[in-house]
Write a protein that binds this DNA or RNA. Structure first.
Lengths: 199, 199
DNA sequence: ATTTACATACCGACTGGTCGGTATGTAATA
DNA sequence: TATTACATACCGACCAGTCGGTATGTAAAT
Protein backbone atom coordinates (compact mmCIF):
# COMPACT_ATOMS: atom_id res chain seq x y z
CA UNK A 1 0.00 0.00 0.00
CA UNK A 2 1.06 3.52 -0.70
CA UNK A 3 1.99 5.76 2.15
CA UNK A 4 -1.06 7.47 3.59
CA UNK A 5 -1.20 11.19 3.17
CA UNK A 6 -3.74 13.79 4.31
CA UNK A 7 -6.43 14.49 1.79
CA UNK A 8 -5.36 18.07 1.23
CA UNK A 9 -1.93 16.96 0.06
CA UNK A 10 -3.09 13.95 -1.90
CA UNK A 11 -5.69 15.98 -3.78
CA UNK A 12 -3.04 18.35 -5.04
CA UNK A 13 -0.80 15.49 -6.01
CA UNK A 14 -3.64 13.97 -8.00
CA UNK A 15 -4.48 17.31 -9.61
CA UNK A 16 -0.89 17.68 -10.78
CA UNK A 17 -0.86 14.20 -12.24
CA UNK A 18 -4.20 14.89 -13.89
CA UNK A 19 -2.82 18.06 -15.46
CA UNK A 20 0.05 16.12 -16.99
CA UNK A 21 -2.22 13.45 -18.37
CA UNK A 22 -4.96 15.79 -19.58
CA UNK A 23 -2.42 17.84 -21.49
CA UNK A 24 -0.71 14.81 -22.95
CA UNK A 25 -3.83 12.94 -24.04
CA UNK A 26 -6.67 15.43 -23.86
CA UNK A 27 -9.61 15.13 -21.51
CA UNK A 28 -11.53 12.45 -23.35
CA UNK A 29 -8.56 10.28 -24.19
CA UNK A 30 -7.16 10.54 -20.71
CA UNK A 31 -7.93 7.45 -18.64
CA UNK A 32 -8.56 7.58 -14.95
CA UNK A 33 -6.15 4.66 -14.78
CA UNK A 34 -3.47 6.77 -16.48
CA UNK A 35 -3.76 9.42 -13.80
CA UNK A 36 -3.68 6.89 -11.03
CA UNK A 37 -0.68 5.13 -12.51
CA UNK A 38 1.20 8.42 -12.72
CA UNK A 39 1.45 8.52 -8.93
CA UNK A 40 1.23 4.82 -8.19
CA UNK A 41 -2.18 5.07 -6.58
CA UNK A 42 -5.29 3.00 -7.03
CA UNK A 43 -8.52 3.83 -8.72
CA UNK A 44 -10.34 3.47 -5.43
CA UNK A 45 -8.11 6.10 -3.90
CA UNK A 46 -8.79 8.49 -6.73
CA UNK A 47 -12.53 8.09 -6.40
CA UNK A 48 -12.14 8.58 -2.68
CA UNK A 49 -10.87 12.10 -3.33
CA UNK A 50 -12.89 13.02 -6.41
CA UNK A 51 -16.43 12.08 -7.31
CA UNK A 52 -15.97 11.77 -11.07
CA UNK A 53 -13.73 12.55 -13.98
CA UNK A 54 -15.64 15.75 -14.66
CA UNK A 55 -15.41 16.69 -10.98
CA UNK A 56 -11.67 16.18 -11.17
CA UNK A 57 -11.45 18.43 -14.20
CA UNK A 58 -13.44 21.18 -12.50
CA UNK A 59 -11.20 20.93 -9.45
CA UNK A 60 -8.26 21.22 -11.82
CA UNK A 61 -9.55 24.46 -13.30
CA UNK A 62 -10.15 25.88 -9.85
CA UNK A 63 -6.71 24.88 -8.69
CA UNK A 64 -5.34 26.40 -11.86
CA UNK A 65 -7.13 29.67 -11.18
CA UNK A 66 -5.60 29.78 -7.74
CA UNK A 67 -2.15 29.54 -9.26
CA UNK A 68 -2.67 32.77 -11.12
CA UNK A 69 -4.73 35.02 -8.94
CA UNK A 70 -2.02 35.53 -6.33
CA UNK A 71 0.39 36.88 -8.92
CA UNK A 72 0.15 39.77 -6.50
CA UNK A 73 0.60 42.62 -8.79
CA UNK A 74 0.74 45.64 -6.56
CA UNK A 75 2.94 46.18 -3.60
CA UNK A 76 6.19 47.53 -4.87
CA UNK A 77 4.76 48.51 -8.24
CA UNK A 78 2.03 50.78 -7.05
CA UNK A 79 3.79 53.96 -7.99
CA UNK A 80 4.94 52.87 -11.43
CA UNK A 81 3.24 53.78 -14.71
CA UNK A 82 0.67 51.32 -16.05
CA UNK A 83 2.87 50.57 -18.99
CA UNK A 84 5.56 49.19 -16.73
CA UNK A 85 3.11 47.12 -14.75
CA UNK A 86 1.50 45.60 -17.84
CA UNK A 87 4.89 44.82 -19.33
CA UNK A 88 5.90 43.24 -16.06
CA UNK A 89 2.79 41.07 -15.97
CA UNK A 90 3.37 39.99 -19.55
CA UNK A 91 6.98 39.07 -18.92
CA UNK A 92 6.00 37.31 -15.73
CA UNK A 93 3.37 35.32 -17.59
CA UNK A 94 5.91 34.33 -20.23
CA UNK A 95 8.24 33.19 -17.47
CA UNK A 96 5.47 31.17 -15.85
CA UNK A 97 4.77 29.64 -19.21
CA UNK A 98 8.35 28.59 -19.68
CA UNK A 99 8.47 27.07 -16.24
CA UNK A 100 5.21 25.21 -16.49
CA UNK A 101 3.74 25.14 -20.01
CA UNK A 102 1.15 22.60 -18.94
CA UNK A 103 -0.76 25.23 -17.05
CA UNK A 104 -1.31 26.98 -20.36
CA UNK A 105 -1.62 23.99 -22.60
CA UNK A 106 -4.77 22.88 -20.78
CA UNK A 107 -6.48 26.00 -21.93
CA UNK A 108 -7.62 24.68 -25.32
CA UNK A 109 -8.92 21.66 -23.43
CA UNK A 110 -10.90 23.98 -21.17
CA UNK A 111 -12.24 25.88 -24.17
CA UNK A 112 -13.31 22.69 -25.87
CA UNK A 113 -15.01 21.51 -22.71
CA UNK A 114 -16.64 24.88 -22.10
CA UNK A 115 -18.17 24.62 -25.52
CA UNK A 116 -20.29 21.67 -24.42
CA UNK A 117 -20.66 22.15 -20.67
CA UNK A 118 -22.47 25.11 -19.17
CA UNK A 119 -20.95 24.93 -15.71
CA UNK A 120 -17.43 24.79 -17.08
CA UNK A 121 -18.23 27.68 -19.37
CA UNK A 122 -19.37 29.70 -16.34
CA UNK A 123 -16.16 28.90 -14.53
CA UNK A 124 -13.95 29.81 -17.45
CA UNK A 125 -15.89 32.99 -18.20
CA UNK A 126 -15.48 34.02 -14.62
CA UNK A 127 -11.76 33.41 -14.78
CA UNK A 128 -11.26 35.37 -17.98
CA UNK A 129 -13.48 38.18 -16.78
CA UNK A 130 -11.23 38.69 -13.79
CA UNK A 131 -8.11 38.71 -15.93
CA UNK A 132 -9.71 41.17 -18.33
CA UNK A 133 -10.86 43.46 -15.58
CA UNK A 134 -7.40 43.52 -14.10
CA UNK A 135 -5.95 44.78 -17.37
CA UNK A 136 -8.88 47.12 -17.88
CA UNK A 137 -8.25 48.77 -14.55
CA UNK A 138 -4.61 49.29 -15.46
CA UNK A 139 -5.51 50.83 -18.81
CA UNK A 140 -8.07 53.15 -17.27
CA UNK A 141 -5.54 54.17 -14.67
CA UNK A 142 -3.12 54.95 -17.49
CA UNK A 143 -5.71 57.06 -19.29
CA UNK A 144 -6.52 58.95 -16.13
CA UNK A 145 -2.89 59.83 -15.52
CA UNK A 146 -2.37 60.99 -19.09
CA UNK A 147 -0.19 58.04 -19.94
CA UNK A 148 -2.52 56.54 -22.54
CA UNK A 149 -4.89 58.00 -25.10
CA UNK A 150 -8.60 57.83 -24.42
CA UNK A 151 -9.07 54.34 -25.87
CA UNK A 152 -11.64 51.64 -25.24
CA UNK A 153 -10.03 50.10 -22.18
CA UNK A 154 -12.01 46.88 -22.25
CA UNK A 155 -11.07 46.31 -25.83
CA UNK A 156 -7.38 46.88 -25.23
CA UNK A 157 -7.54 44.54 -22.29
CA UNK A 158 -8.85 41.90 -24.65
CA UNK A 159 -6.05 42.55 -27.11
CA UNK A 160 -3.53 42.03 -24.38
CA UNK A 161 -5.13 38.84 -23.23
CA UNK A 162 -5.48 37.29 -26.67
CA UNK A 163 -1.89 38.26 -27.39
CA UNK A 164 -0.83 36.31 -24.35
CA UNK A 165 -3.02 33.44 -25.51
CA UNK A 166 -0.91 33.45 -28.63
CA UNK A 167 1.76 31.82 -26.52
CA UNK A 168 -0.33 28.67 -26.53
CA UNK A 169 -0.31 28.49 -30.31
CA UNK A 170 3.36 29.28 -30.11
CA UNK A 171 4.04 26.36 -27.82
CA UNK A 172 1.93 23.99 -29.86
CA UNK A 173 3.54 24.61 -33.20
CA UNK A 174 6.93 25.87 -32.07
CA UNK A 175 8.09 28.00 -34.95
CA UNK A 176 11.76 27.61 -34.12
CA UNK A 177 12.68 30.84 -35.87
CA UNK A 178 12.02 33.09 -32.91
CA UNK A 179 11.68 33.03 -29.16
CA UNK A 180 8.66 33.31 -26.96
CA UNK A 181 10.12 36.33 -25.22
CA UNK A 182 10.53 38.19 -28.47
CA UNK A 183 6.96 37.41 -29.37
CA UNK A 184 5.55 38.68 -26.09
CA UNK A 185 7.76 41.77 -26.04
CA UNK A 186 6.87 42.74 -29.57
CA UNK A 187 3.15 42.30 -29.06
CA UNK A 188 3.10 44.25 -25.85
CA UNK A 189 5.14 47.05 -27.37
CA UNK A 190 2.82 47.28 -30.34
CA UNK A 191 -0.17 47.60 -28.07
CA UNK A 192 1.36 49.88 -25.48
CA UNK A 193 3.06 52.18 -27.97
CA UNK A 194 -0.14 52.21 -29.96
CA UNK A 195 -2.16 53.61 -27.10
CA UNK A 196 0.51 55.89 -25.65
CA UNK A 197 0.00 59.63 -25.95
CA UNK A 198 2.10 61.01 -28.76
CA UNK A 199 4.81 63.48 -27.90
CA UNK B 1 -33.29 4.34 -48.71
CA UNK B 2 -31.74 7.73 -49.14
CA UNK B 3 -31.34 9.18 -52.56
CA UNK B 4 -28.07 8.04 -54.09
CA UNK B 5 -25.53 10.73 -54.80
CA UNK B 6 -22.10 10.68 -56.39
CA UNK B 7 -19.31 10.15 -53.90
CA UNK B 8 -17.75 13.55 -54.48
CA UNK B 9 -20.96 15.29 -53.40
CA UNK B 10 -21.78 12.94 -50.56
CA UNK B 11 -18.31 13.26 -49.10
CA UNK B 12 -18.71 17.02 -48.81
CA UNK B 13 -22.12 16.64 -47.30
CA UNK B 14 -20.68 14.26 -44.72
CA UNK B 15 -17.76 16.60 -44.03
CA UNK B 16 -20.15 19.44 -43.36
CA UNK B 17 -22.22 17.35 -41.00
CA UNK B 18 -19.03 16.19 -39.30
CA UNK B 19 -17.94 19.79 -38.85
CA UNK B 20 -21.20 20.63 -37.10
CA UNK B 21 -20.97 17.65 -34.80
CA UNK B 22 -17.26 17.96 -34.05
CA UNK B 23 -17.74 21.58 -33.08
CA UNK B 24 -20.79 20.88 -30.96
CA UNK B 25 -19.41 17.87 -29.09
CA UNK B 26 -15.69 17.83 -29.70
CA UNK B 27 -13.88 15.10 -31.58
CA UNK B 28 -13.88 12.46 -28.88
CA UNK B 29 -17.45 13.00 -27.73
CA UNK B 30 -18.73 13.12 -31.29
CA UNK B 31 -20.29 9.83 -32.29
CA UNK B 32 -20.13 8.45 -35.78
CA UNK B 33 -23.84 7.80 -35.35
CA UNK B 34 -24.41 11.49 -34.58
CA UNK B 35 -22.80 12.49 -37.84
CA UNK B 36 -24.74 9.93 -39.80
CA UNK B 37 -28.00 10.95 -38.18
CA UNK B 38 -27.37 14.60 -39.03
CA UNK B 39 -27.91 13.82 -42.71
CA UNK B 40 -30.17 10.81 -42.35
CA UNK B 41 -27.60 8.37 -43.66
CA UNK B 42 -26.44 5.01 -42.39
CA UNK B 43 -23.23 4.02 -40.72
CA UNK B 44 -22.46 1.70 -43.60
CA UNK B 45 -22.68 4.62 -45.98
CA UNK B 46 -20.32 6.69 -43.88
CA UNK B 47 -17.76 3.93 -43.73
CA UNK B 48 -18.15 3.54 -47.45
CA UNK B 49 -16.84 7.06 -47.94
CA UNK B 50 -14.35 7.29 -45.08
CA UNK B 51 -12.11 4.63 -43.65
CA UNK B 52 -12.23 5.71 -40.02
CA UNK B 53 -13.13 8.51 -37.66
CA UNK B 54 -9.59 9.81 -37.70
CA UNK B 55 -9.57 9.64 -41.49
CA UNK B 56 -12.76 11.67 -41.54
CA UNK B 57 -11.18 14.27 -39.30
CA UNK B 58 -8.12 14.54 -41.50
CA UNK B 59 -10.32 14.93 -44.56
CA UNK B 60 -12.17 17.63 -42.66
CA UNK B 61 -8.98 19.57 -42.02
CA UNK B 62 -7.98 19.28 -45.66
CA UNK B 63 -11.40 20.40 -46.80
CA UNK B 64 -11.16 23.23 -44.33
CA UNK B 65 -7.80 24.28 -45.74
CA UNK B 66 -9.29 24.37 -49.22
CA UNK B 67 -11.94 26.80 -48.04
CA UNK B 68 -9.29 29.32 -47.12
CA UNK B 69 -6.53 29.05 -49.64
CA UNK B 70 -8.58 30.31 -52.59
CA UNK B 71 -9.38 33.54 -50.79
CA UNK B 72 -7.59 34.76 -53.86
CA UNK B 73 -5.91 37.78 -52.53
CA UNK B 74 -4.31 39.39 -55.52
CA UNK B 75 -5.97 40.29 -58.77
CA UNK B 76 -7.58 43.63 -58.26
CA UNK B 77 -5.54 44.47 -55.20
CA UNK B 78 -2.15 44.07 -56.65
CA UNK B 79 -1.41 47.75 -56.85
CA UNK B 80 -2.60 48.66 -53.36
CA UNK B 81 -0.35 49.19 -50.35
CA UNK B 82 0.26 46.18 -48.11
CA UNK B 83 -1.61 47.87 -45.31
CA UNK B 84 -4.79 47.91 -47.35
CA UNK B 85 -4.40 44.30 -48.39
CA UNK B 86 -3.80 43.09 -44.85
CA UNK B 87 -6.73 45.07 -43.57
CA UNK B 88 -8.85 43.63 -46.33
CA UNK B 89 -7.83 40.08 -45.48
CA UNK B 90 -8.57 40.68 -41.82
CA UNK B 91 -12.01 42.11 -42.53
CA UNK B 92 -12.67 39.31 -44.97
CA UNK B 93 -11.70 36.75 -42.35
CA UNK B 94 -14.00 38.38 -39.82
CA UNK B 95 -16.82 38.24 -42.35
CA UNK B 96 -16.12 34.57 -43.04
CA UNK B 97 -16.18 33.97 -39.35
CA UNK B 98 -19.57 35.59 -38.95
CA UNK B 99 -20.98 33.58 -41.81
CA UNK B 100 -19.59 30.26 -40.69
CA UNK B 101 -18.12 30.32 -37.20
CA UNK B 102 -17.80 26.55 -37.19
CA UNK B 103 -14.89 26.71 -39.57
CA UNK B 104 -13.01 28.59 -36.87
CA UNK B 105 -14.41 26.84 -33.84
CA UNK B 106 -12.87 23.54 -34.92
CA UNK B 107 -9.47 25.06 -34.55
CA UNK B 108 -9.06 24.35 -30.84
CA UNK B 109 -10.15 20.81 -31.63
CA UNK B 110 -7.41 20.61 -34.25
CA UNK B 111 -4.88 21.97 -31.81
CA UNK B 112 -5.86 19.47 -29.17
CA UNK B 113 -5.61 16.65 -31.68
CA UNK B 114 -2.30 17.89 -33.05
CA UNK B 115 -0.94 17.70 -29.54
CA UNK B 116 -1.27 13.92 -29.55
CA UNK B 117 -1.07 12.98 -33.23
CA UNK B 118 2.02 13.58 -35.30
CA UNK B 119 0.37 13.43 -38.70
CA UNK B 120 -2.30 15.92 -37.74
CA UNK B 121 0.37 18.16 -36.27
CA UNK B 122 2.20 18.06 -39.61
CA UNK B 123 -0.96 18.98 -41.44
CA UNK B 124 -1.80 21.85 -39.14
CA UNK B 125 1.77 23.13 -39.12
CA UNK B 126 1.74 23.15 -42.87
CA UNK B 127 -1.50 25.08 -42.94
CA UNK B 128 -0.34 27.70 -40.48
CA UNK B 129 3.02 28.00 -42.19
CA UNK B 130 1.30 28.95 -45.42
CA UNK B 131 -0.89 31.53 -43.72
CA UNK B 132 2.13 32.96 -41.95
CA UNK B 133 4.17 33.13 -45.11
CA UNK B 134 1.38 34.92 -46.91
CA UNK B 135 1.39 37.66 -44.30
CA UNK B 136 5.17 37.66 -44.16
CA UNK B 137 5.38 38.33 -47.87
CA UNK B 138 3.00 41.24 -47.53
CA UNK B 139 4.99 42.72 -44.68
CA UNK B 140 8.27 42.37 -46.54
CA UNK B 141 6.67 43.96 -49.57
CA UNK B 142 5.60 46.84 -47.36
CA UNK B 143 9.09 47.24 -45.97
CA UNK B 144 10.59 47.21 -49.44
CA UNK B 145 8.28 49.96 -50.65
CA UNK B 146 9.01 52.13 -47.65
CA UNK B 147 5.56 51.63 -46.22
CA UNK B 148 6.67 49.80 -43.07
CA UNK B 149 9.69 50.10 -40.82
CA UNK B 150 12.36 47.45 -41.02
CA UNK B 151 10.68 45.05 -38.60
CA UNK B 152 10.89 41.30 -38.16
CA UNK B 153 8.38 40.33 -40.81
CA UNK B 154 7.89 36.76 -39.61
CA UNK B 155 7.18 37.96 -36.12
CA UNK B 156 4.64 40.52 -37.24
CA UNK B 157 2.97 37.88 -39.36
CA UNK B 158 2.59 35.83 -36.21
CA UNK B 159 1.09 38.76 -34.36
CA UNK B 160 -1.46 39.20 -37.08
CA UNK B 161 -2.37 35.54 -37.09
CA UNK B 162 -2.71 35.18 -33.35
CA UNK B 163 -4.79 38.35 -33.31
CA UNK B 164 -7.14 36.73 -35.76
CA UNK B 165 -7.14 33.61 -33.61
CA UNK B 166 -8.42 35.83 -30.85
CA UNK B 167 -11.74 35.72 -32.68
CA UNK B 168 -12.10 32.14 -31.55
CA UNK B 169 -11.83 33.06 -27.92
CA UNK B 170 -14.19 35.89 -28.70
CA UNK B 171 -16.79 33.54 -30.14
CA UNK B 172 -16.44 31.08 -27.28
CA UNK B 173 -16.94 33.49 -24.43
CA UNK B 174 -18.89 36.21 -26.21
CA UNK B 175 -18.15 39.33 -24.22
CA UNK B 176 -21.32 41.13 -25.25
CA UNK B 177 -19.81 44.54 -24.63
CA UNK B 178 -18.21 44.88 -28.04
CA UNK B 179 -18.35 43.58 -31.54
CA UNK B 180 -16.08 41.25 -33.42
CA UNK B 181 -15.47 43.89 -36.08
CA UNK B 182 -14.30 46.41 -33.54
CA UNK B 183 -11.94 43.85 -32.11
CA UNK B 184 -10.40 42.96 -35.46
CA UNK B 185 -10.16 46.58 -36.61
CA UNK B 186 -8.51 47.72 -33.43
CA UNK B 187 -5.97 44.92 -33.40
CA UNK B 188 -5.03 45.39 -37.01
CA UNK B 189 -4.67 49.12 -36.58
CA UNK B 190 -2.45 48.68 -33.57
CA UNK B 191 -0.17 46.38 -35.50
CA UNK B 192 -0.19 48.27 -38.80
CA UNK B 193 0.20 51.70 -37.23
CA UNK B 194 2.89 50.27 -35.02
CA UNK B 195 5.03 49.19 -37.93
CA UNK B 196 4.25 52.10 -40.25
CA UNK B 197 7.03 54.58 -40.97
CA UNK B 198 6.56 57.72 -38.90
CA UNK B 199 5.92 60.95 -40.72
C1' DA C 1 -3.28 1.63 29.45
C1' DT C 2 -6.53 -0.80 26.98
C1' DT C 3 -10.54 -1.40 24.69
C1' DT C 4 -14.22 0.37 21.74
C1' DA C 5 -15.92 3.12 18.13
C1' DC C 6 -15.57 5.60 14.37
C1' DA C 7 -13.07 8.01 10.47
C1' DT C 8 -10.04 8.40 6.80
C1' DA C 9 -7.08 6.54 3.17
C1' DC C 10 -6.56 3.14 0.09
C1' DC C 11 -6.97 -1.42 -2.79
C1' DG C 12 -8.35 -3.85 -7.18
C1' DA C 13 -11.55 -7.16 -9.29
C1' DC C 14 -15.60 -6.53 -11.55
C1' DT C 15 -19.53 -4.79 -14.60
C1' DG C 16 -22.49 -2.80 -17.93
C1' DG C 17 -23.17 0.33 -21.25
C1' DT C 18 -20.97 2.48 -25.10
C1' DC C 19 -19.27 3.06 -29.70
C1' DG C 20 -15.79 2.45 -33.54
C1' DG C 21 -15.69 -0.68 -36.77
C1' DT C 22 -17.19 -4.97 -39.73
C1' DA C 23 -19.86 -8.42 -42.33
C1' DT C 24 -23.32 -9.11 -45.33
C1' DG C 25 -26.93 -7.97 -48.08
C1' DT C 26 -29.68 -5.05 -51.69
C1' DA C 27 -30.87 -1.73 -55.03
C1' DA C 28 -29.46 1.63 -58.30
C1' DT C 29 -26.20 3.00 -61.96
C1' DA C 30 -22.80 2.66 -65.64
C1' DT D 1 -22.83 -7.79 -64.97
C1' DA D 2 -19.69 -5.07 -62.45
C1' DT D 3 -19.38 -1.48 -59.70
C1' DT D 4 -20.95 1.98 -56.67
C1' DA D 5 -23.87 3.71 -53.03
C1' DC D 6 -26.23 2.64 -49.60
C1' DA D 7 -28.76 -0.21 -45.33
C1' DT D 8 -28.88 -3.42 -41.27
C1' DA D 9 -27.41 -6.32 -37.87
C1' DC D 10 -23.87 -7.35 -35.19
C1' DC D 11 -19.22 -7.68 -32.67
C1' DG D 12 -16.03 -6.97 -28.93
C1' DA D 13 -12.58 -3.97 -26.85
C1' DC D 14 -12.64 -0.57 -23.75
C1' DC D 15 -13.25 2.14 -19.50
C1' DA D 16 -15.87 5.13 -15.93
C1' DG D 17 -17.56 4.09 -12.05
C1' DT D 18 -18.78 0.53 -8.16
C1' DC D 19 -18.20 -2.03 -4.13
C1' DG D 20 -16.66 -5.21 -0.61
C1' DG D 21 -12.98 -5.11 1.81
C1' DT D 22 -8.25 -3.81 4.37
C1' DA D 23 -5.08 -0.85 6.78
C1' DT D 24 -4.02 2.96 9.54
C1' DG D 25 -5.10 6.53 12.34
C1' DT D 26 -7.46 9.03 16.60
C1' DA D 27 -9.98 9.95 20.47
C1' DA D 28 -13.41 8.99 23.84
C1' DA D 29 -14.83 5.56 27.34
C1' DT D 30 -13.53 2.08 30.52
Amino acid sequence: MTERRPSSERRIEILEAALTIFVKKGYSEARMDDIVQEIGLSKGALYHHFQSKRDLFIALIEHWMDQFSPIERGGLMRAKPSREIILHIAKFTAKLFKRNPNWFLVEPEIWAFANRDKEIKELASHLYASVLSEFEVLIKRGIEYGEFRDVNAGMIAMSIMTSLHGMIWFALFKPNDFSLEEYVDLNMELILDGIAVQD
